[in-house]
């Protein structure tokens, strides 16, 4: 039986994302007609790849698109005056 793209699947993936191994609470899961899109940002490419690997491994029959970005870490060019 193939995995249904329903809200239980979405909740299970969210649970996986926030468990002790991955520990990413800022990843979004969006259901499309035939696929799931993982979004948000993480701190490294290695972390993004590991998240997508684990989700794909757990749900091999679901088409998962990994649209997770890496948060930029450059120095600021402006200062905000607080008043």
């Amino acid at each position: 039986m193939s995995t249904q793209l329903d809200e239980y699947l979405e909740a299970e993936i969210q649970s996986m994302l926030t468990d002790g191994r991955i520990a990413e609470l800022g990843i979004t899961v969006q259901r499309r007609e035939h696929l799931l899109v993982l979004g948000g940002e993480v701190e490294s490419g290695r972390r993004r790849d590991e998240i997508c690997r684990q989700i794909n491994e757990r749900f091999p029959d679901v088409h998962i698109v990994c649209d997770i970005g890496i948060t930029r870490a450059s120095a600021p060019s402006e200062v905000e005056e607080i008043s």
Partner: peptide
Amino acid sequence: KQAYNVYQL
């Protein structure tokens, strides 16, 4: 979305 923000007080 950058390493840090800077605030002036």
